[in-house]
Structure formats: C-alpha cells, structure tokens
Nucleic acid binder design. Structure first.
Length: 281
DNA sequence: AATGAAACCTGACAGC
DNA sequence: TGCTGTCAGGTTTCAT
C-alpha cells in the first residue's frame, strides 16, 4: 500500500500524536512473526519504553525508544555499560496500517498488535495481507539513498552500469529507498523516460531530469497526504489526495494529459507499468 | 551478477 | 448467490 509519501504522512501523524508517550503494555497476535525479532523480543523492548521520536526511513517507520525512568543522568551513574537505544521498526507492506485510537474503538479484523499507552490511548497495527513486518533494532540503518536528499552524483552512479530497466532500478530499495510502483511511473512520465529503457542507456541530462522529477512528485504527494487508491488512510484515518494528480498510473487506455495518446500498460519485473509512448522515449 | 517467476496473504471487483 | 479469475501501493527466495 504505502510508498514514501504515504509512509512520511503516517510517520508525521504518529510523531505528533504519540511522541513522548509511554508504552505500558503490548499485545501481539500469533501471526505477525517478523523477520528477525520474536514476539517476546518485541514486547520486551516496547513495554515500559518511552517513544522519543517517530520518523520515516525509506518505507520504514522508525520509533526511537528510550527506557522509561532511565534518563541520561541515571544511566551515567549506572554500572551497566551504555547500549544504543532500541528502535521499533515497522514496515507496512502492502496493506499495513497504524492507528491511534481510544481503547473502546472496535478492534478491526487482522489486528496484529496493540500497544497500550500511558495517555490512555492505543496504538494498533492492522494488516490484512500480512506482508508488513515488525522488528526491533539498535542503530537501524537502511540500504540505499534517500531520494529527497539525494545529490546528483551518487544518484547518477546508481544507474551508470546497470542494464536492468530503469523502472526496476527505481524500485530496487538497495539503490534508492522509498520509491514504489506509483511514484516510479509518475516520475518517469514527468522525466519523459520509458520505463523499459535500460538504465545504462539513459544520458546524464535525462537522469538529472529524472532525479528532479522524483523529488517534485514525492514532495507534491507528501503535500497532499499521499495517494489513496483503495484503502490507504493515514494515522488519523484521513485519505490522501495525490491520486487525483496521477498522470499515468492507473490510467491505461485513457488519453495522455499532454498529447492525448492513449496511456499504455505493460508488465516489467512483474509490476504494472504505465506510460505514454509519445511523451516518453 | 542479474533477470524473472513464484511465493507470501487477503480482499475487492468483474464476468459468467 | 456464488463461483472463477484477476488484480493490488512490497519484498524475499529460488531457479535459470
């Protein structure tokens, strides 16, 4: 479901609502066994921790935790050697949602985690398709370049010698983190590049245009709260509006907004890809 | 090293 | 009403 703008919107919403709150207790369902952390490890790290900050890294939501009641002063005096503070990492997969709500709010089907907060509210993780992942990390570092902060030279270097289609390269989170299917198609349209073009054949000038298109598209989408296609809503349950700005994604067979040529849909690396054959070369 | 298909899951929707 | 097939914003794994 969520790409960079949706995850950014959710992270900002969560930051304003739960920063500083303390996790009093944790319930975890049977199923969301994530990649590395066991349910026990997650519960142990979360319970009695304070949520210092919430931020986005690529498509991950990072909750920076600090142990409750153990401020800097006390840990300095402690005999326990200082360890990096823990982080709760949430990846929403395709259908994951994080909601902050009152305890009496009806528990949705496919709710896999409930955190009771000292403020009296609950933070819940709901994910019908169960592609989402929860884990605990220390010193979390994601692979790839953050697109909104990317300088041109490192961006250029990512594609220079890759023969893979540029669309596939953009979706590769080890290269660039946060761009997904919608924003790859939209960025390529605005840059005038066909999704199947081999990355290595794209000129320096075109890649410069691509990077700026990516930034413009992502920033516009963030400003509009992301794209709500089927069921995406942010942490406050609000829909985004960037879907109204899509120029090619989901517009197969409709006229290009620039030249009226019918928008094509092809499959690249198993993903639907939309483009205008006249505007994109 | 690098494509690509399949797998992981559930739900929505179209067509019959 | 209900069955079948297709599709979905993501990522990993296995085969070629």
């Amino acid at each position: 479901m969520p790409e960079l703008p949706e995850v950014e919107t959710i992270a900002r919403g969560l930051a304003s609502r739960v920063s500083g709150d303390v996790i009093e207790s944790v319930w975890l369902g049977q199923k969301p066994e994530p990649l590395k952390s066991t349910a026990l490890e997650i519960a142990a790290a979360l319970e009695h921790s304070r949520i210092a900050t919430v931020r986005r890294v690529g498509k991950h939501i990072v909750f920076d935790l600090e142990p409750k009641g153990r401020g800097r002063v006390r840990s300095r005096q402690s005999h326990v050697p200082p360890t990096a503070s823990a982080q709760w990492i949430v990846h929403l997969g395709m259908t994951g949602r994080l909601q902050v709500c009152e305890p009496q709010t009806e528990i949705l089907k496919h709710t896999h985690a409930i955190l009771k907060l000292a403020s009296g509210r609950e933070l819940r993780f709901v994910d019908p398709r169960r592609f989402g992942r929860l884990s605990i990390a220390r010193g979390f570092e994601a692979a790839g370049i953050e697109p909104l902060e990317a300088e041109f030279d490192p961006f250029f270097a990512l594609f220079r010698s890759r023969k893979t289609p540029i669309k596939s390269a953009l979706l590769n989170q080890k290269l660039l983190r946060g761009v997904g299917n919608i924003y790859a198609d939209e960025s390529l349209f605005r840059a005038g590049i066909r999704p199947r073009r081999s990355a290595s054949t794209i000129t320096r000038e075109q890649l410069a245009r691509l990077l700026s298109s990516i930034k413009v598209v992502l920033n516009e989408a963030i400003a509009l709260g992301g794209s709500s296609i089927s069921d995406y809503v942010d942490a406050d349950g609000e829909e985004g509006f960037f879907q109204l700005q899509h120029r090619v994604y989901g517009r197969e067979g409709e006229p290009c907004l620039v030249c009226k040529t019918l928008v094509k849909r092809i499959v690249i690396g198993g993903r639907s890809s939309h483009y205008c054959a006249k505007c994109q070369k």
